[in-house]
Design a protein around this nucleic acid. Structure first.
Ligand code: MN
Ligand code: MN
Ligand code: ZN
Ligand code: ZN
Lengths: 145, 145
DNA sequence: CTGTAGATGCAACTGAGTTGCAGAAAAATA
DNA sequence: TATTTTTCTGCAACTCAGTTGCATCTACAG
């Protein structure tokens, strides 16, 4: 049994467990997102799946579906493009299981996934409660040029 | 000399000092933004200036111009709409003189301007440097519903 | 007052995302 | 396996926020 086929079946199972049908768009997306070290935009997903011949709207809908099924997380960073990252059920070192802060680099546009240890935010309760943190600045590669 | 005329002349001077011509679109915008307790979107500006009969694109261009002249600040929050807030030259209690963190309420969409005292962010330098902070969560009005 | 750099209106365009609908493909069922 | 039911997909048209080219207009320096 070929390796590729095997993986495909694994992803199909993940989808089914989440209550979604195992369609090629969703399988390829999941696989791509799982491989990616950082969140991807719709556009990046299209480019990352040159073999897949899917309509734009289908891809958008697939990303929505994966998001509402809890398999991926959608990030609204401050640059008018949504990004998606895989949510793994069992928290591992990468820490993708729970929401975490992100740093959007204003120079190169890259996203750095942070942990709650990296950034500590304290907000007086009278002002509200924090659910998500987005930093903008210069990433490790771009700082002091 | 009518009060309104006086204010108009003040704003014209502000514009001229910043190297911009004193056009009605810019004057009305500055006045509106200065009155507003929170950043406004282009759309909100249009609605806030019902008397002004200006083309959409002119308003957009005016907002751009004010921004690049340093008279207003443009905020890229995570909801695909730009917001603009007045930058006052002399720092006052409102603290609008310098960039500051903002809280975007995920319930009602309101923006709360914060101060650096309200939120303390520490990011390990190896990961980059922070220039702006955006929090998402529940604003004072919406928390615990 | 005038000449001109710069602002405006209009219409067409972009990019990201959404939507209605008819036909196609999964999964459920028999 | 064949049939039925449910969900997904492609397509085309649409929305929303913002941008752009160009002819015309206007603020203001001289
Ligand atoms: Mn992340
Ligand atoms: Mn503010
Ligand atoms: Zn960078
Ligand atoms: Zn709120």
């Amino acid at each position: 049994m070929p390796r590729r086929k095997q993986r495909t079946e694994d992803w199909r199972q993940v989808l089914r467990d989440a209550g979604l049908r195992g369609t090629s768009a969703r399988i390829e997306l999941l696989e791509l997102l799982a491989r990616s070290p950082r969140p991807l935009t719709h556009q990046e997903a299209v480019e990352g799946l040159p073999q897949v011949e899917t309509d734009r709207s289908t891809l958008f809908r697939a990303l929505q579906d994966l998001t509402s099924a809890g398999l991926v997380r959608r990030l609204d960073l401050g640059d008018r493009v949504w990004r998606y990252e895989r949510v793994v059920a069992t928290a591992d070192a990468a820490g993708e299981a729970v929401p975490h802060p992100h740093l959007l680099c204003v120079d190169c546009g890259n996203i750095t996934c942070l942990t709650d240890d990296d950034v500590q935010v304290k907000l007086p309760k009278r002002l509200g409660t924090v659910e998500d943190v987005l930093l903008k600045g210069h990433c490790a590669d771009c700082k002091e040029s």
